[in-house]
Design a protein around this nucleic acid. Sequence first.
DNA 1: CCGCATCCTCATGGATACTG
DNA 2: CAGTATCCATGAGGATGCGG
Lengths: 216, 216
Amino acid sequence: MDEVKRVASRSYGQFCALARALDVVGDRWNLLIVRELLPGPLRYGELKSSLGGIATNLLTERLRSLESSEILERRLGESGVVYALTRWGSELREPMEALGRWGAPLVASGRGDDYFHPRWLVLAIPALLQGTTADPPLSVGLEVEGYLINLRVDQTGPHATADLDPRPSTVLSAPPDTVVALAAGAITVDQAIDVGHLEGDAEDLWRVFRRSPPKT
Amino acid sequence: MDEVKRVASRSYGQFCALARALDVVGDRWNLLIVRELLPGPLRYGELKSSLGGIATNLLTERLRSLESSEILERRLGESGVVYALTRWGSELREPMEALGRWGAPLVASGRGDDYFHPRWLVLAIPALLQGTTADPPLSVGLEVEGYLINLRVDQTGPHATADLDPRPSTVLSAPPDTVVALAAGAITVDQAIDVGHLEGDAEDLWRVFRRSPPKT
DNA sequence: CCGCATCCTCATGGATACTG
DNA sequence: CAGTATCCATGAGGATGCGG
């Protein structure tokens, strides 16, 4: 007769901003769902496939939960329902970029047989290039597994921006491993070219990724 | 015959810095354990009690897991084994502060019958005061539930620092709700005094917490 | 097809008792 | 005090069903 108090599903019950944040986004898959939506709204099926193997009941349950927490909302797009971050939800970008930066050493060890989606670079590259500036501003297209990532760096903002972009431009082509290793600072542009993993005019890339040499 | 591939306990299996970070610290209680250790090393029993109700088997398992991930290490202190963050583990402060800042609206709604430990303010106050400076520098003691938090703000660094400190000084006494609400910007120093929830000379506090008025 | 809902199995979390 | 051991409740993951 005392189990009435179980209001939310599994709260830490702590008066602490971090703990309450984790009450809301700490459950498995939640932050990865937000990661998928940061570049823009997606449909259910797109979420499911780009998350790579989440169970359908979990995805549904998480979407409902995040919706009731005002982190995302269901919208009616042209082709049906899309899920989009709210203003507050999109403000998760900062903590997520910080966590990604902290986790950079974990990707520098290389891709194993892990799943990968180019969309993730849209969050990862600006996060890992934090503090980089370019004057004059430059814009590089990076083609990874058929997707074109548009990377822009200017002199004003202390951070780079990147977008998925359907139209072609002057692009460099590279496999995921190379791009991630470059962003994480694990290899240099020279090394990427030497191994033949970077095709195109790398001059602009030099200006972006010329940073501290690899730790070795 | 195909279940051989289950290497780690439950990895997302994604080549993404955020996902791999979550593989390591994303499990329940992990970030809260790090939060406890950020102010300094703790013993097992201290962790257990200040986390407020974690099961002993879970605490043990998480400590082992975080140890093997090189986030914390067991040290032999004077009074036995203590758990201390490694260098890399302590670098989780940034993402955690960012997440706490994001979660500030969730504490502004007030403490319910949630558990509270003054130690948490050591992380929360500097995080929420990010960007605040003081010239000349000031140092305020905040007494909350018998603990003394020493809050320092100077002109150089863009962030405040705070420590648990056993020796007395000029202190202001306040209940947790008031301190958290002040830091989160939900109330002003004036309002705290008016309701009688802030005792002592609040002049220094004024210089720290005079920020944007409550949203209301 | 897409967008879920249901079912089933098993791993994980949580509370409590117990032990060196 | 610092954990193990145990038992039960819950959540994750995969397969499948089903209406639109």
